[in-house]
Design a protein around this nucleic acid. Sequence first.
DNA 1: CCGCGGAGTGTTTTT
DNA 2: CACTCCGCGG
Length: 609
Amino acid sequence: MLSRASKHDPRCKNVEGGTFHSFAYKMLKRYSKAIGFPDAFTVLDESDAEDAVHRCASKMGLYERKARFPKKDTLRSIISMSINKNSAIGEIIGKEYPHFAEYLPEIENLRKEYAAYKVDKNYLDYDDLLVYLRILLENSDIRDRLSQRYKYVMVDEYQDTNVIQGDIAYLLSEKNRNIMVVGDDAQSIYGFRGASHENIMEFPGRFPECTIIKLEENYRSTQSILDVANAVLENMKNKYSKCLVSAKKQAGEKPQLLFFKDAYEEAEWVADLIKRQLDEGIPLGHQCVLFRSLYLSIPVQSELSRRNIPYETYGGLKFYETAHVKDIMAHLKLLVNPKDELAWNRVLMLIERIGPKTAGVLIDETAGYASLREIVESLFPKYAKGRPYSEGLAKLGAAFSAVYGEKMNVGEKYELILEYYVHLLKENYDDWHLRMNDLEALRQIAARYDSLEDLLEDFAIEPPQKGVWGVEPETKEEEKPLVLSTIHSAKGLEWDAVVVMGLMDGVLPVTFALDSEDEIEEEQRLFYVAVTRGKKRVFLTLHHEGMRGGITQFNKISRFIDVPNVLSKLELMDITRPHAREFHEKGPEETGALYDKKQLLERIISFYK
DNA sequence: CCGCGGAGTGTTTTT
DNA sequence: CACTCCGCGG
């Protein structure tokens, strides 16, 4: 956003900016002493946080009982929701997880235990970043200092902020009262992580002197696209008193609605469309394919590859969350902070014949040493003989000792750690070859850093999208690849031509949302966001036959579209592909026998000779 | 105590 | 259908 603004006025380059989380991180780093934190703290990503919760729950013996205690990801999300939605654990469980009501006291204890654990180990999870920043800002001395430094505050996508973020924005600008927030309550799609439009509603209460500006003219989309968006808004229970009017003079093309037999025909058509539009002169970078969840994009990805159309995916399972990337990062983390027991656990468990028990014993022992060097030189030798894992541990020690203390740059350190890790990678993953590509890409990223600390910080808080990081601005408009994105990740972005795929009930809205009216409406806002990403052309597609667990399901058109006022704004297209359909439905073709089984087998075996 | 294989389960969106 | 948990063999 700042780089885009800089094109209009170069002074924008001097503006500090980032997500609430990255801003919080910077401030906590600067004022760590004020809240009694040492300078070195580690930010836990979501899966680290889950591991930490799991460790606490195990320590408390919560998994020893016969009855089923919630799993670590559920526990972490209960605790996280209670913070982000600013409500008690009991309330969250009552509303979202009533089947776990019997465990309320245990989970409340776990929450305390987890909080204490993090304080003890100098860990901060994503929620803590916000919580601690708010605590920091509640101190009037610090608040004054920050007000001195940041005289003007602007918050974008304000409808996506939660109570804590609202408080932070308020505290930060309470003194100077120079704050501007921008938001659209109809685009609120992060309710699941505690965002609420309340912050927008309460803003005039907190800043009574504020001016409210309603932006009703839309500079992005054509009127034909906005007609669909308006129709969607009309159908919502929550009445948004808004009617989008385009600033563009031409009405533009009516968005098309296309039906397909199955996901493959849909994907084929979409890939063909992209190609056609490219030939028409719309660069790939000006086109985009959107969907509710990432798995829906898999057929399109293969169709695009077949046509040699370059693409990149936004959102969903991220490459920095994959096991091999986390493995190597854990090694690097130990170089920076040898007290990081989650990293130790990951690193040790990779070694042959080390399981949870042994790892636990070793980790407890590391606590008695001050540096990684001491651990490697004094602790590891104790286990150098007579243990099934002695050899593996020695290799790890050798790898560490080659790196610590030596004067070398980040790229070289990474290289040495990778050299050690490669054998573990090959042993643990059949597809190690693919994973190696990621680790190579990561090496190039790492090499751009001056210190490991900086690399790890950025990685925890603003991880790279796809192994490319900071290279993007250099890319020429015509060379940018096609974007495949979840609707969530497409927020705030725009393209000339947008395809929204998989518009079926059960996909958008997702099945899990169906039992709550609020959640259905959040899905509907998501649809609204998707449609309004398009500037000139919008295509909505769906397919009827869905495969779920081996059985064919018949999909219904999304309830958000199957309404007269929406349908009337769309061009209905039934794309049937008779040839493809016949091929699938006809069954075995009548031909003479070419081989019998024995001949066939010989044929196959001869391939390998 | 580790590691492997079978059974069972829930399956989304993100900082 | 992919991941996690559980039980068994070494």
